[in-house]
Design a protein around this nucleic acid. Sequence first.
DNA 1: TCGGTATATCTCGTATACAATGGGGATATA
DNA 2: TATATCCCCATTGTATACGAGATATACCGA
Lengths: 244, 244
Amino acid sequence: MNQRVKPSPPASPAPRQGKNGDGAERHEAIHRSISDAIIEHRLKPGARLREDALSEVFGVSRTGIRKILQRLALEQLVTLTPRRGASVTRPTADEAKDVFDARQMVECGLMSDIARRITQDDIVTLKDMAQREREALRSGEQSVAIRLSADFHTYLARVSGNRTLADFVERLCSRSSLILAVYGNAGHLGCESHDHQDLIQYLEDGKGERAAAFMGRHLKAIEASLSIVEEEDEAPNLFDIFAP
Amino acid sequence: MNQRVKPSPPASPAPRQGKNGDGAERHEAIHRSISDAIIEHRLKPGARLREDALSEVFGVSRTGIRKILQRLALEQLVTLTPRRGASVTRPTADEAKDVFDARQMVECGLMSDIARRITQDDIVTLKDMAQREREALRSGEQSVAIRLSADFHTYLARVSGNRTLADFVERLCSRSSLILAVYGNAGHLGCESHDHQDLIQYLEDGKGERAAAFMGRHLKAIEASLSIVEEEDEAPNLFDIFAP
DNA sequence: TCGGTATATCTCGTATACAATGGGGATATA
DNA sequence: TATATCCCCATTGTATACGAGATATACCGA
């Protein structure tokens, strides 16, 4: 199935020893691997993440895996249930609304700073990302497109120079990706194909106000494209269903 | 030197089990304890937090302490340096600016929603908090005042109904408390005494716009009261000092 | 008296072992 | 055949043991 051999040492079954190399780097890499898999929908909401399996796949002991899982839980990408272990978070409809409202506020609010501070290099990078995203969309590589879309928004936020807010936007984008996985229609995903390119144009022209307004519409459009119907497999609420 | 004064239950090696039903509860309580101590300035920026000492104080093993420390690190209240252990974070001047800019954006942006959704019960609670804060300030109980001030802002954000943004504000307030500890003047701390009460009045009258503007000035005032001079004990920058 | 080196100790990082709990499957019964 | 019950096992939670890195100290030499 998934022969994407993302984990760096795939063929090494028992490189037990923590190895000389920096252990922290390794953990960082593992975190990225799992995080990427979730964001790119290769791991779907609800998927269980067993500690044993992960420790075997990545060749580190459960202790390290637990640490990474804790971190992912704080980033709200995975959910830790007391005796049941970890699973990919399945966002609720309320959470979805909160996330998009937050993005609306922060990403639009950042636009004026971004317009003021953006450099030519940034514009080149962003145009490249937008271009590659379009190509990915056209060739049907959903995973790549989703990743690039999130990266685009995150990169943009970083241009503002406010690290705290940029980190926040990054996490909101990750969660958005999860939301798309649950509530998105298979047909067209998130960002319209040339929205990002239009946005860059506004920024290149120094029109911060226009860019902010455009970003607002852009996010609203994504949110509107979702079919947010709370699937209540959890609590079928028989009263509501059978009461007259 | 430190003769290991046997962990709290010396005779009970195995039945250690917290017994309070849920061990997670215990961890939550410990997290709160440490978090509170930091926010209330009973633990000052730079203070070292040794795992052994904490595990002895709270009667849990280092494993549990590590988990809590990791979480505090992700909340940016403590800093984990690879082989040196944990210490209370000492925010930089840049971080301070970012945090206050973020608060400016989010807390003001939330005001219209807050004004729309606030209930009479909320107003009573908030008035009580503001009142107690004033009393604490007057009687010189800095720790209590700081805590109440952060709680006030956090509670307000929760009223908005957006949990994601409220959580973010909570973390910003915690970090602000840290910033106050480093850059605040001993004389008057953060919030002016009746600012909070005035703010509630605007909200009670349904004047969301005014409340937002007032919150903006309020935050700017706090920020302005700081003496943000990067103490460069870390890197004295000898070039600047000794270059002609 | 000052500086450099070696040792000692302290603290964290990682792995492993053991205990407890909850769920799933098998079985028995209506 | 369907449902309820019980037991075993899979999986996590916690503690502990061992190893490595870094810092502080002490000793020796100049």
